[in-house]
Amino acid sequence: MFTSFAKAFTNLFKKPQTIDYPLTPIVKDRDYRGLIGYGEEACIYCLKCEKACPPGAILFVPVENPPENKQNKKGLKYHYNPYLCIYCSECVRACPKPDEALWQSNKKPEVAVMDDRVNEGWFELEKLKKQND
């Protein structure tokens, strides 16, 4: 009891442990698991990341709809939903060319607002994907 008493008193003269959060940003470690980055030039369209992703946050959807040639992998476009992503980096491990085509950064996603249509936009993509399968 007296140790807590003394501790409470000495804490009065210490700098608080917590930070003034929205004003002072949190520094994330270099290896923090954050957003997935994508390099289109290096991608070979093997679609391994799409298969590996547990929540299905990576979709390769044809640009033209319906696609003229289903075998044409270059006609696909990479879509990534940071709000669905669980940042497990399964996709990066599955990628044959990690660091060039797909990599993990330590950044957090922006706060989504209604105008972004995060959900609706994504549902449309999922629907498109289903149609073309």
Binding site: A8, F9, N11, L12, K14, P16, Q17, T18, I19, D20
Partner: peptide, 11 residues
Amino acid sequence: VVRARMQNRQG
């Protein structure tokens, strides 16, 4: 504020 400082937090 004082109580927060005693608990070592911003408050």
